[in-house]
């Protein structure tokens, strides 16, 4: 039995990728299931999806805990999530990255296939949605399914949901990514730790009172604690600020949904906080003097 875990971001289509892989596996003569991890995730937040395939009927209904393969749709997730948790050492990882396999540190030395799927998606589809391209890399790295089956699976799932033409384009993206995938071995130096959960006792959390802001084993909790969650890794494009053109109208500062633009120098100029900027592009769109430009991060 092969079990696959997809690490993606909301809106990148990890769930559709899992479904397309299941469809591809089915065409190769496997039994296959695909299912997402249900959470309240927004576009850009880390999400999970799974595919399970076997030559026999699949009776396992639980979440995948010990995957044979992990597929990482954004290499910045490696720093945020323990992506190699439970990963079978004889398996493999597939990563969307501009780095080489040797530069990827997954906390274990393991077969890894890398491809710059974001560039492939931008070239072929015109949007940075990498779910189809990464499946091409999956076929090349693991060899469990052929690229032809992956193309069929993508036509099937993508074509059915977003139109035949889009299905064809996405199949092409998978093929391009297949040809560009480089397979090697990852480094295993980093210590991967899963984030601890905060499980307070009744004494720590008095009933009927508002939670205070406090430091715990799991990090900061309570009012204002969302600052712990650095959303900067979500973006594909980032704003570049030209100070000379700025007239300090403060519209970008007002319109930033994250509050990632700060007034500094006693209100004389602005600074961008890239720890939180999600790259939505409102600031560049609304700037009356075009002092902000969005470029690929």
């Amino acid at each position: 039995m092969y079990e696959v875990r997809f690490h993606g971001r909301g809106g990148q289509g990890a769930v559709m990728a899992a479904q397309a892989l299941a469809s591809a596996a089915f065409k190769e003569g496997y039994y296959a299931v695909a299912f997402p991890y249900f959470g309240a995730e927004r576009r850009g937040a880390p999400v999970l999806a799974f595919t399970r395939m076997d030559k026999q009927k699949i009776r396992r209904k639980n979440q995948v805990y010990n995957p044979s393969f992990v597929v990482i749709l954004d290499d910045r997730l490696i720093d945020l999530v323990n992506v190699s948790e439970g990963l079978n050492p004889s398996g493999a990882a597939v990563v969307n990255t501009r780095k080489s396999p040797e530069e990827i540190d997954l906390g274990m030395e393991i077969k890894v296939g890398v491809v710059d799927a974001t560039s492939v998606a931008l070239e072929v589809l015109g949007v940075p949605i990498t779910n189809s391209a990464i499946l091409g890399a999956f076929a090349k790295t693991t060899g469990v399914v052929s690229i032809e089956a992956v193309e069929e699976g993508i036509r099937d799932i993508f074509g059915g949901r977003i139109g035949k033409e889009a299905g064809e384009k996405n199949a092409k993206a998978a093929r391009v990514a297949y040809d560009r995938t480089v397979v090697g071995t990852s480094r295993g130096e980093k210590k991967m730790v899963s984030k601890k959960q905060w499980l307070p006792t009744v004494q720590e959390l008095p009933l009927g009172l508002a939670t205070r802001s406090m430091e715990t084993d799991a990090g900061l909790v309570g009012p204002g604690s969302f600052v712990e969650n650095k959303t900067g890794s979500w973006r594909t494009f980032k704003p570049v600020f030209n100070r000379d053109k700025c007239v300090m109208c403060l519209l970008c500062w007002f319109y930033c949904p994250e509050g990632a633009i700060k007034r500094v120098d006693g209100g004389k100029t602005l600074e961008f906080d890239f720890d939180y900027c999600k790259g939505c592009g409102i600031c560049a769109e609304e700037c009356p003097t075009k002092a902000i430009e969005m470029v690929r991060d």
């Binding site: 204002g224 969302f226 969650n229 949904p257 720890d275 939505c280």
Partner: peptide, 11 residues
């Protein structure tokens, strides 16, 4: 209303 919240980009 601090940064770090998980709204979609451009919310």
């Amino acid at each position: 209303f601090t940064a770090g919240h998980t709204a979609c980009p451009g919310c």
